[in-house]
């Protein structure tokens, strides 16, 4: 464990909690892509099946349980409890165009052709593009609530911090995992234009609105 991975995990946890609280407190999931949240639930489920097979640490197990629990709670709030506030018209990204290629790639490019390892690889590839429906929805509506931008900032920051963690591990532990690094770079790059808007607008107290 190093400071980048720890702050990365905490940033990820913050993002998940911010989103859950936003929906729960405002009793609304306006502006939130339910499709992205379903993809994240799939990412956690396929990645954390090792909860059933191996114990690494209290921290590892508790974080995985929290991530999975919050992900399904968020999906439940969006599609069941507050479904009247779900903006399905703008949440129109064709996720099958993500899941199918990612599934194929996971079978072709992985470290070990075993069930759990292919699922892990699938979850790594899927996570790198899982935010696309959400970013697509914001581009369609042309704006995002400020709390949603904080959620996205923490979510984007977490994998950027993981990139620093992998640089640290390469330098000090001469360890690197090409699959996780490439997917992490793709994932972080997808947030770049959002990061620019967040830093130049939201941090200056303006609302995040895209040129329509």
């Amino acid at each position: 464990m190093n400071v980048f991975r720890l702050t990365g995990d905490l940033s990820h946890l913050a993002a998940i909690i911010i989103l859950l609280l936003k929906i729960w407190k405002s009793r609304s999931c306006a502006g939130i892509s339910g499709k992205s949240q379903i993809l994240f639930a799939i990412v956690f489920t396929t990645r954390y099946l090792d909860l059933l097979t191996s114990f690494i640490s209290i921290y590892n197990t508790s974080m995985k349980v929290i991530y999975i629990g919050c992900a399904y709670a968020t999906v439940y709030l969006i599609y069941m409890k507050f479904r009247a506030t779900y903006d399905g018209n703008h949440d129109s990204f064709r996720v099958e165009f993500l899941v199918v290629p990612v599934g194929g790639l996971a079978v072709l490019v992985n470290h070990d052709f075993s069930f759990l390892e292919i699922l892990w690889t699938f979850s790594i590839y899927l996570e790198s593009v899982a935010i696309l429906p959400q970013l697509f929805m914001i581009s369609k509506t042309g704006e995002a609530e400020t709390i949603t931008t904080h959620y996205l900032f923490c979510l984007g920051l977490y994998r950027a911090l993981y990139l620093l963690n992998w640089i640290w591990r390469f330098y000090f532990e001469s360890f690197f995992d090409m699959i996780a690094i490439v997917a992490g770079v793709v994932q972080t790059v997808l947030y770049c234009d959002f990061f620019y808007l967040y830093i130049t607008k939201v941090l200056k107290g303006k609302k995040l609105s895209l040129p329509a």
């Binding site: 991975r5 590892n60 974080m63 470290h111 892990w120 963690n165 591990r169 532990e173 360890f175």
Partner: peptide, 10 residues
């Protein structure tokens, strides 16, 4: 087993 050294990462 631990051929992939980042099994401890979330």
């Amino acid at each position: 087993e631990g051929e992939r050294g980042n099994k401890d990462e979330l």
